[in-house]
C-alpha cells in the first residue's frame, strides 16, 4: 500500500479535461454528497473534490461520476475518462490500481 494518495482534485482536473465531459458529480453516496455540497455552500469553502479515492488491501480504487455533453457518445467519453485517469496515475507509480469506476450519470 502507498503512503501518498494522488490528490483527488487533480484527478478531477484530469477528468474534466476529457472532451465531452461537461460535469463532474460527487461520486460519494447520495446523502454524503448532499451534506458535503450544502456545507460547502454554507461555509463558502471551495467545493470538495468530486472524485472518491479509497485505498484498500488490493490497491487504489477510484470512483468518478460524470455528465456527458451534447454531441458526444457517452460510451466513448466514458472509456476516454478511464484512460485519462490511468495516464494521470502513472505519475504515482507507488499506487497500485485495483479499480477505476466511471459512471455516466447524465447525457446531453
Amino acid at each position: 500500500m502507498s503512503d501518498v494518495l494522488p490528490p483527488a482534485d487533480l484527478v478531477d482536473e484530469a477528468v474534466l479535461a476529457v472532451p465531452g465531459v461537461d460535469s463532474l458529480y460527487s461520486a460519494a453516496p447520495l446523502v454524503t454528497a448532499v451534506i458535503t455540497t450544502a456545507l460547502d455552500a454554507l461555509t463558502s469553502r471551495p467545493p470538495s473534490a468530486s472524485t472518491v479515492l479509497v485505498e484498500e488491501m488490493s490497491g487504489l480504487s477510484i470512483a468518478v461520476k460524470i455528465g456527458v455533453g451534447e454531441g458526444y457518445a457517452a460510451t466513448e467519453v466514458c472509456r476516454q475518462v478511464h484512460d485519462a485517469i490511468t495516464v494521470h496515475l502513472r505519475g504515482y507509480p507507488e499506487c497500485e490500481i485495483a479499480k477505476i469506476a466511471v459512471t455516466v450519470a447524465r447525457i446531453g
Partner: peptide
C-alpha cells in the same frame, strides 16, 4: 460499458439512458 482493462468498471446509469 465495455473496456479491455481488467481494472475498469464503466457504467452508464439507467436514468441517464432514459433521459
Amino acid at each position: 460499458i465495455e473496456h479491455p482493462s481488467p481494472t475498469a468498471r464503466l457504467v452508464v446509469t439507467e436514468g441517464a439512458v432514459r433521459g
